[in-house]
Design a protein around this nucleic acid. Structure first.
Lengths: 349, 349
DNA sequence: TTGAAAGCGCTAACAC
DNA sequence: GTGTTAGCGCTTTCAA
């Protein structure tokens, strides 16, 4: 209640040093927990820090260290038609996303690294984003890219910023990534359907401009071919529940004798279940359904979904680890880590 | 391919100035688009910027301007029991969240302000967060707080950082916020149920430690009282679909003659629908159901939900506007903005 | 073990 | 309209 009205500005190292009766350098050493500081002095300084309410200024700090202590999670989507068709609704609503963030946080938090979430859905926002990143706001970036011709991965490698993708890049470029064995995972779904005795199987694929969409379709078709089904009809969806519902209706119309369906994610499988339910078709009695992801949608639907599980949290954690390794230069080479999916059997197939 | 091997470091204002043959100040003026620069010189400088690939260093810039050009969106949740019960799943999976982000982005983007997303679910992470924010990483914060005894709102006001809440604070503290008229919204649901002729109405409330949970319960009860129903049974949920399902089962057990239910959000209403469906109870024939939010879950459920709509995107946009106004000191006083909900009638009631 | 001093890259007076 | 200059708050040699 005394000398506090001196200034309105936040206390600086200088202020703390004055109160503690030492130099700025010493305070800096204490704050940064460097060795070689006398115990007594350390305590005096800590008291001064507490008394002044000092908090280091990040801008000043990273100006000299060239480190920010933050990494970015960038979500890049193809287009964003209007305010009423929010791409954000799609991304954030997908249970997939929460699990990714959760996995990332689990490795970032203990190391006191912060997560900055950034979105890019237009070309404008994409270059604005690159600028932001190049300005040194973050030490590295994790990219969740949702379409094939996304220029962001290569823009990022060009920028020289440490980067890791959450999926195989659609065109081979030298960039680190984490992925699940999509092809094999789709094979698991095919095996299950074949094993149940399904003979007329169709699939609701993801967008063909996404690697995950392509891989799951090809993997499924190849595996069904091994089971003797030469032709597997498919309708393309966009990973939303709604698109799954529409696709199922189309499939039913064009191929009324279908007895099994593989949807490239759980949300679409859930949509398919709705369409089947509306037509009074029993699942799995008349049509068996298999999803992909093992997201919360899998247990929330009726009947609960048999689905291919990817260890999303683990994959996300691996992505964060890999990025941190790149940043610390512990890992200089471009690296990939692939996780094996498993089949989770519930009631839908 | 010539003098480029001179250094490995990023080009600075100095470098650009040298190439352009002007002073650093002039380059700065061009980069920051300040008036009072000769057209010719401006062009020369712009060419030099392009040639050198110059990008301003944010740390240096904000060290002097004391501005970062970013604001934080903080999501604060009560607890986080384990890796398997990810609170992130709850927050990010709720369609509500995507709409909030979407609304915020719509006002931030045009002003080139960046959004930093931060999470806090433990006391540890909460103080780590406050430190981060006080270090000057962002110019202001928007807080989505999910429980009553959250210390964050007052920690934030104490820190002196411009802050806006997405809901009325649970204890009255001097802080700006945006909210929907929860009480009135719940009344809309009651009116609809009464109008349909429901005589035994119950409710699945939100968590009682959240203002939104309390307000919707009280609002609903008062309105039902006006319609002559003195006692409205309620079971508490936590805004997840699963909790809605469980609550509905409990309600059915304890009050078998229920003919109408108000769930405090759409996810829980969706869960209620599932429980009703499992018991073979027709909706709205035997039991009418009303939700709250008008989220994507409302149209995805069977039957589609009659629900109370809050203009989430608009509210989120208003929150961002308010924050920006505080930051620019255009708005110094603590302010609130309340939005009116409306009833959206579909099939469930 | 501690202090003095030199910047990190930028903006904003102020002078010209 | 343009250049000079003084910091912004911090870390980090280098001496002592």
């Amino acid at each position: 209640m005394a000398a506090d009205d001196e200034v309105q500005r936040a206390p600086t190292l200088e202020d703390v040093a004055r109160v503690a009766g030492v130099s700025r350098a010493t305070v800096s050493r204490v704050v940064n927990d460097t060795r070689n500081v006398d115990r007594r002095i350390r305590e005096v300084v800590q008291a001064a820090v507490a008394q002044t309410g000092y908090v280091p200024n990040q801008a000043a700090r990273s100006l000299v260290t060239r480190r920010t202590g933050s990494v970015a999670l960038v979500v890049s989507e193809a287009e964003h038609r209007s305010f009423d068709d929010p791409f954000l609704g799609r991304v954030f609503t997908d249970p997939f996303f929460g699990r990714v963030v959760s996995g990332i946080i689990s490795v970032l938090r203990p190391r006191a690294v912060n997560l900055v979430l950034m979105l890019a859905e237009t070309d404008d926002s994409r270059s604005q984003l690159i600028d932001y990143l190049r300005q040194g706001h973050v030490d590295g970036v994790m990219l969740i890219s949702t379409h094939a011709d996304d220029p962001l991965p290569s823009m990022l490698t060009d920028s020289g910023l440490p980067t890791v993708l959450s999926r195989r890049p659609s065109t081979p470029i030298p960039i680190s990534y984490v992925d699940a064995a999509q092809h094999a995972g789709a094979g698991l779904a095919a095996d299950r359907l074949a094993e149940r005795g399904c003979r007329q199987v169709a699939t609701i694929s993801g967008p063909m401009d996404m690697p995950a969409g392509q891989d799951r379709l090809h993997g499924f078709r190849e595996a069904m071919a091994r089971h003797g089904q030469a032709f597997v009809p498919s309708v393309e969806g966009n990973f939303t529940q709604d698109s799954g519902e529409r696709a199922m209706r189309e499939l039913l119309e064009r191929y009324p004798d279908i007895d099994g369906v593989f949807a490239a994610n759980d949300l679409m499988a859930q949509g398919a279940l709705l369409a089947l339910h509306d037509r009074g078709i029993a699942v799995p009695g008349q049509v068996a359904v298999v999803g992909f992801d093992d997201s919360s949608a899998a247990t929330a639907s009726r009947p609960p979904l048999t689905t291919v599980r990817q260890p999303i949290e683990d994959m996300a954690a691996a992505m964060a680890e890999l990025l941190l390794a790149h940043i610390d230069r512990r890992q200089a080479r471009v690296t990939s880590r692939i996780f094996e999916p498993t089949l989770v059997v519930r009631e839908s197939a």
